[in-house]
Design a protein around this nucleic acid. Structure first.
Lengths: 192, 192
DNA sequence: ATGGAGTGTCAACAGGCGTTGGCATACGGT
DNA sequence: ACCGTATGCCAACGCCTGTTGACACTCCAT
C-alpha cells in the first residue's frame, strides 16, 4: 500500500479493466458456469491467477462484472401518457449496445447470487422509478413487476433465446408494439 | 432384443421413469451445467452409469427430459375476443403444476441445444396455433413472438428470477392484467 | 544504487465432472 | 433346471475446474 487516499492510477488498472471486459463478454455469451476463469484470462491475455489476485474469486469477479445501472431516465419529467414509449425505447436502446443485461439474464437463470442481484436491480432501480409516476404508490411494486415481466421477456426472447421474429424486428417496431403494454401496466387498469 | 414389435413393459421402465423424473427436477432447479448426472442418479437411487446406458449421454438425457408439449387448447373454437384470457390462463395453470417450462428456461439460458428446442416449441406449437386465429396469417410469426415475449417474461420473473411482486400475485390477478396484452398482440394493432 | 512493493508467470493441487468397461446378480423363455 | 439376456453396481479413466504458492521481473521512492 503506497498511497491510500489519493488513489492514483496504478499500472495494473489496465489489466483490471481488461479482465472485466473479457469477463462481461464471456459471462454474457456463456453464462456463469460455462464462462471459465481460464477462458476469461485467455481473452484478457493474462494468467488466470491474476483474476484471483484482483477479484478474489470467480464469484467476486462476477459481482464486479455484473454491476449494472439501468440508467433510467427521469420519468417524472415526461408526459404521463408517453411513459411506456419512453421506457421501452430506453431499454431497447440500452440493451442493443450493452450486453450486460444479457449476461445477467443468462447467469441469473442458474446462479442464485445473480438472481439476487436481478431482484436488487428490480427493487432499487425499477420499482423506485416507477413509484414516482404511478397513480397509487401502494400499487407500484405490482405495476413494476408487470413491467419487468414484459421487458425481461423481451430481452430474453431477443438476446438469449433468439426467437427469430423477435430478433428480426427492428427497435422501432418493438417500441411501437410493446410501449402500449408498458403504458397500461404503469398507468392503466387490467381492463383497459 | 427379445421382442421387437409389441414392446411389452420391461422391468427397467420404472428405472427409466425414475431417472427422467429426477432429471426434470434437477434440470429445473439447477439448470443444465449444475445438474450433474451423479446428483440425478442419486435422486433416482441408481448408479450414474445407468443414466448413460439408458440415455446415452447427458445431452440425450436432457433431450428426453425436455420433451415438452404446450398442450395448447384449440384456439379456433374460442370467441376471438377472449383469446388472450384463454391463452394466459392456460399457460399459468400449466406452469403452476409442471416445472418443465422452468427447467427449459433455466437450461436454455446457457445450453444451445435447449435454446434450439425452445425455438422449436415456439415455431411448431405456438406460432402454428396463433396462425389460425390471427387476422392476417403473414403477421402470425411476429404476433406469436410478441406473445412469447410476454408469456416467457412472466414465466421468467415468476419461476426463475422470483421477483417478489410477480411471485406473490395469484394466478387470477396475473390473468386479469396480462390477458389484455396478449389479446392485443394476437388481434389488435400497435396503437390499440 | 538499492530495497520493497507492485505486477506477472508457472506449475501444481485437490476435487468434481462425464463417461467407460468389467463384473455380479436377477429374470424369464425354453 | 438351464442359459442368455437384461439390469445394476463398482472402480477407474482422462479431463477440466477454481484456487494456491513459489518464483521472476519492473518500477519508483529513497
Amino acid at each position: 500500500m503506497t498511497d491510500a487516499a489519493p488513489s492514483r492510477t496504478r499500472r495494473s488498472d489496465a489489466t483490471r479493466a481488461a479482465i472485466l471486459r473479457a469477463a462481461r463478454e464471456r459471462f454474457a455469451a456463456d453464462g456463469y458456469d460455462r464462462a471459465t476463469i481460464r477462458a476469461i484470462a485467455a481473452d484478457a491475455r493474462i494468467d488466470p491467477s491474476m483474476v484471483m489476485r484482483y477479484y478474489g474469486s470467480k464469484e467476486g469477479l462476477f459481482a464486479a462484472a455484473a454491476e449494472f445501472d439501468l440508467r433510467l431516465p427521469e420519468l417524472a419529467d415526461a408526459p404521463p401518457e408517453r411513459l411506456g414509449e419512453l421506457l421501452v425505447r430506453h431499454f431497447v436502446d440500452r440493451w442493443e449496445t450493452d450486453g450486460t443485461m444479457a449476461a445477467l439474464l443468462r447467469t441469473a437463470a442458474t446462479n442464485p447470487a445473480a438472481a439476487e442481484r436481478m431482484r436488487g436491480i428490480f427493487a432499487d432501480q425499477l420499482t423506485i422509478a416507477v413509484t414516482r409516476v404511478v397513480p397509487d404508490p401502494a400499487e407500484a411494486p405490482r405495476r413494476a413487476g408487470l413491467v419487468a415481466s414484459q421487458m425481461l421477456g423481451l430481452a430474453l426472447t431477443r438476446y438469449v433465446l433468439r426467437l427469430p421474429p423477435v430478433v428480426d424486428a427492428d427497435p422501432a417496431e418493438l417500441v411501437a408494439w410493446v410501449a402500449p403494454t408498458v403504458q397500461r401496466y404503469l398507468r392503466g387498469t387490467p381492463d383497459a
